[in-house]
Amino acid sequence: MSTGVAVGPDDWGEAENAVSAAYFAHELTPLTAGSEPRLNVRATQIGALRLTRIGWGADVSVDTRHPGAYAVNIPLSGRIESVSGGHDVISGPGKASVFRPDTGAVITRWTADCEIVGVKVDKDYLHRELARILGRPDRRLPDQVDLTTAAGQNWMGLLRSIVEQVRGSEGLWQTPVVAQQLSGAITSAFVLAAMPDDTAVAPRPRIVKRVLDRIDADPALAWTASDMAEAAGVSVRRLQEGFREYLGMCPRDYLLDVRLARVHDDLVAGDPSSTSVTDIAVRWGITHTGRFAAAYRRRYGVAPSATLRS
């Protein structure tokens, strides 16, 4: 689901209701007497996640408890100043504020020039993913995430890519399998960006081989990094280190290689009058068709449509 809302300039109550429906229920307080809202809010649900873009157009304060879910607020401009769990956090571009579920929190000042991307993550879903990705269910998320690190930039790049994919996929992303894959990818990348590096020993080759065998047997599965780590019985970081050491690539690149090979075989054998490149790509778990086409061309030297027509 993707929604966009425009609100009349004199109605703070309607502005509060619109953002409550799109993100979290809250109490809104304008900080400047006589100010008027210039609200911009858009929301997209992807599996257990909701991505919401919010700008009030005026200095405001927001009071909420984030019932049942974590909130990760990423300022694209301006800043948010907040207090939660006794901690003061100020975030602008390059930082993200993390709010825990069912915990009182106040954004004491959301500046007029601030627009955020808010990521709402179901509490139980994130706790399961923390256990699967890090191998430790007791890890506590920090109050703020640095998005200027390599892991932070990777997460933001993935978010931007998936938002573009959702906008151009004509509903394909709404299918349960695709939604599960996208939400899993976003969550895994967020956890790796949010948590400090664990000291880890690379898994032995047999553990890597276990994942290779599972991927080869079912590459169309909506694999996420945490799924692969769970299959290996190690954390995501340990699995990534093992793949880099023994294969010279990350698990996601190996999965793409396998999918490209399966797609190529089906394109060679396919009939262009009764099937399409998209049909075949989706059959093997490909959801980002633009990125797939570029990867296919790099590997095989031609566009996938050319292989199907040959």
Rank of each mutant, 00 (worst) to 15 (best):
V41C: 15
R132P: 00
E81S: 15
I133E: 02
R65T: 15
M249K: 01
D146Q: 05
P219C: 11
R309V: 00
A202F: 14
Y254M: 07
I90H: 00
A202H: 13
S20L: 02
R140N: 05
L126D: 08
T29C: 04
A225V: 02
M195K: 00
W223D: 08
R136K: 12
E14I: 00
V177I: 01
L267W: 09
V60S: 08
V60H: 03
R237I: 05
R237P: 02
N40Q: 11
L221V: 00
S188A: 15
A48Y: 13
S235N: 07
I207M: 12
S235D: 07
Q174W: 02
R160V: 01
Y70R: 06
S310D: 09
I116A: 06
L31T: 10
H127T: 13
S61N: 03
R214H: 03
S310Q: 09
V302P: 07
Q144V: 14
L158H: 01
G4W: 03
D59M: 02
G57T: 03
Y254Q: 04
R291V: 15
R38L: 06
A69K: 15
F292L: 12
G135V: 05
Y254D: 04
D271V: 02
A231M: 05
P75M: 13
R206G: 06
Q45T: 14
K123H: 12
P205N: 06
L159P: 11
P137M: 03
P142R: 03
G157M: 12
V106Y: 13
K123V: 09
T307E: 11
N73A: 14
E241S: 14
A200R: 13
P137R: 06
R139D: 01
G301N: 08
R309L: 01
V208E: 07
L247R: 10
S77K: 04
L76Q: 12
G248R: 01
A194R: 09
V211C: 10
R238A: 14
Q165H: 04
S183A: 14
A43T: 13
M249C: 04
Q174F: 04
A105R: 08
T175V: 03
E81Q: 14
S274A: 12
P251A: 11
T111C: 07
G301Q: 06
E14R: 10
I133C: 06
Q153S: 14
G171E: 00
D138W: 06
L126Y: 02
A6R: 11
E170C: 08
V5D: 01
L28Q: 08
V62Q: 03
S2P: 00
Q240L: 01
A21L: 12
I116T: 15
A269R: 15
V83K: 07
V178S: 08
E164Q: 05
V7A: 09
V117A: 11
A194M: 12
A193P: 10
G13H: 02
D279F: 00
T108K: 14
W56H: 13
V258C: 10
S82C: 12
T175L: 11
F243V: 09
A294Y: 05
T148S: 12
G184T: 08
G184D: 05
A232E: 06
G290K: 03
R299L: 04
A43K: 02
R109Y: 09
P219V: 12
R204A: 12
F243N: 06
F190S: 06
V166G: 08
R132L: 08
V201T: 13
D124Y: 05
A202Q: 15
D102Q: 08
V89N: 07
V177C: 00
P101Y: 10
A151N: 11
A220V: 01
I107F: 14
A220R: 04
V282Y: 03
